[in-house]
Amino acid sequence: MTTLAPARDGEGRQFDAHPVATMMLDPTGTIIAVNPAAQNQLGLADRQLVGRHFSDIAPDFAGREYPASQVMRAFDVALALPGRTLALDILAETDEAGRTVVALLPARSADATRAAAAQPSAQGAAVILAHEIKNPLSGIRGAAQLIASGTPDPARFTMLICREVDRIAALIDRMEILSSQRSLDLHGASIFPLIRHALDLARAGFAADIAIEERHDPSLPKASLDEDAFVQILLNLVKNAAETLAGQDDAKIIVSTGYRHGHSAGRGPDDRPRDAPIMICVSDNGPGVPAAILPDLFRPFASGRSGGTGLGLALVDRLARDMGGTIEYARDDTRGLSHFRLMLARAE
């Protein structure tokens, strides 16, 4: 994976010229370099920061580990600065030598701003509803065709049809989520039966001709989620991958799960950081998201495909946030894979 910024030794000029506010930490978490953008962002000179432990200014990070070659993202982190507190999002990546690059980004938890941007007009809500209903309808049609063709397990696909009809009805009701503050039914549940159901639906419908590989960590604890919302998120992500891969001979989708220590989803009502360590990742070997739409990837009507509505990822983002989690995108050009990672809290 490409690091966010080079180390100072040998490429200090590039580090200093990096437009993103960036710090470098040594393996102990001590700040060893601060670029000018970060100095401006924090209102502190490098001499006031270099030599201090990162947790001195980011208390939420005290005792946290930084696994090598993994990106850790935390939202709405409160930085303790002289005479004030500054909320920023943090993106951290550790190289094999144990050095960590920390990017300081404008707080995504302008949640009110993002939520307002996600509020559709009445016409937009109708378009989103039509878009979302097409996913289960595709699966229902595929399941019905399998039953008609004499599948050896008709009961399984009959139950799939029944569940999806019920879910369409629930989806229509849930459209209120995009224009109201109604809470989801959050509770502790295993993600694996829900993943199985969503992938059964995808394989019976819109992803019937695409290889879907599963890589799971069976030891994962229960996650805090709403079951219908979770299935809707996974369906949208797999459908998005399938549409990206249309016409590609070696098309492949990978659905993987894992546990990422230290991943934060902002701050809870008690002002404590909310951990969201349970990861569900949908990857594909397509071309990736066009750079032009990356800043607005999860906003309504942002789409990189001809004929795309840009609505599926907007709903994914809203549902993920309403479940106390996050959704993020990353591109691994070395392996030629795009990753959409849903991060959820562990059930209490």
Rank of each mutant, 00 (worst) to 15 (best):
residue 4 L to N: 13
residue 78 A to G: 10
residue 323 M to R: 01
residue 132 E to I: 03
residue 322 D to P: 12
residue 221 P to M: 05
residue 149 S to D: 07
residue 110 A to Y: 07
residue 254 I to C: 05
residue 237 L to R: 03
residue 332 D to Y: 13
residue 151 T to K: 06
residue 71 V to K: 11
residue 207 A to D: 09
residue 111 D to P: 12
residue 302 A to D: 10
residue 278 I to E: 06
residue 288 G to V: 14
residue 251 A to Y: 02
residue 240 N to K: 06
residue 325 G to I: 04
residue 167 R to Y: 06
residue 115 A to M: 01
residue 307 G to R: 13
residue 51 G to I: 08
residue 167 R to K: 14
residue 143 A to M: 11
residue 321 R to Y: 10
residue 205 G to V: 05
residue 55 S to H: 08
residue 97 A to G: 13
residue 133 I to T: 09
residue 217 D to T: 09
residue 115 A to N: 05
residue 128 I to E: 00
residue 216 H to A: 07
residue 176 E to D: 10
residue 6 P to A: 00
residue 43 G to T: 11
residue 312 G to Q: 03
residue 304 G to Q: 06
residue 341 R to T: 14
residue 93 E to T: 14
residue 6 P to S: 00
residue 348 E to V: 02
residue 187 H to Q: 11
residue 323 M to V: 04
residue 89 D to E: 02
residue 202 A to C: 14
residue 4 L to T: 09
residue 237 L to C: 12
residue 277 P to E: 02
residue 246 A to R: 15
residue 164 E to W: 10
residue 217 D to L: 01
residue 103 A to K: 01
residue 268 G to Q: 08
residue 192 F to G: 09
residue 84 R to F: 06
residue 269 P to G: 03
residue 79 L to Y: 06
residue 188 G to A: 06
residue 83 G to S: 13
residue 99 R to W: 02
residue 192 F to M: 11
residue 243 E to K: 15
residue 264 S to K: 02
residue 268 G to A: 06
residue 21 A to D: 10
residue 68 A to Q: 10
residue 40 N to V: 08
residue 184 L to P: 12
residue 184 L to F: 10
residue 305 R to V: 07
residue 296 D to I: 08
residue 24 M to C: 12
residue 146 L to W: 01
residue 336 G to T: 13
residue 224 S to W: 06
residue 136 P to R: 00
residue 148 A to E: 14
residue 184 L to R: 15
residue 246 A to H: 14
residue 189 A to E: 04
residue 299 R to A: 15
residue 254 I to T: 12
residue 297 L to K: 15
residue 38 A to V: 12
residue 317 D to C: 12
residue 186 L to T: 10
residue 178 L to A: 14
residue 84 R to G: 11
residue 347 A to R: 00
residue 205 G to Q: 13
residue 281 C to G: 11
residue 188 G to F: 08
residue 38 A to R: 13
residue 244 T to L: 02
residue 221 P to E: 07
residue 2 T to Y: 07
residue 216 H to E: 06
residue 3 T to K: 06
residue 241 A to V: 01
residue 271 D to I: 05
residue 168 I to D: 01
residue 3 T to R: 09
residue 23 M to G: 02
residue 119 Q to M: 08
residue 303 S to D: 13
residue 270 D to E: 05
residue 88 L to I: 05
residue 201 L to W: 04
residue 124 G to K: 02
residue 216 H to K: 00
residue 98 G to S: 05
residue 237 L to E: 15
residue 87 A to K: 15
residue 46 D to Q: 14
residue 226 D to V: 15
residue 61 F to W: 10
residue 346 R to C: 07
residue 126 A to G: 07
residue 178 L to N: 14
residue 151 T to F: 01
residue 265 A to C: 06
residue 289 V to P: 15
residue 38 A to M: 08
residue 142 G to P: 14
residue 231 V to F: 02
residue 175 M to G: 12
residue 68 A to L: 08
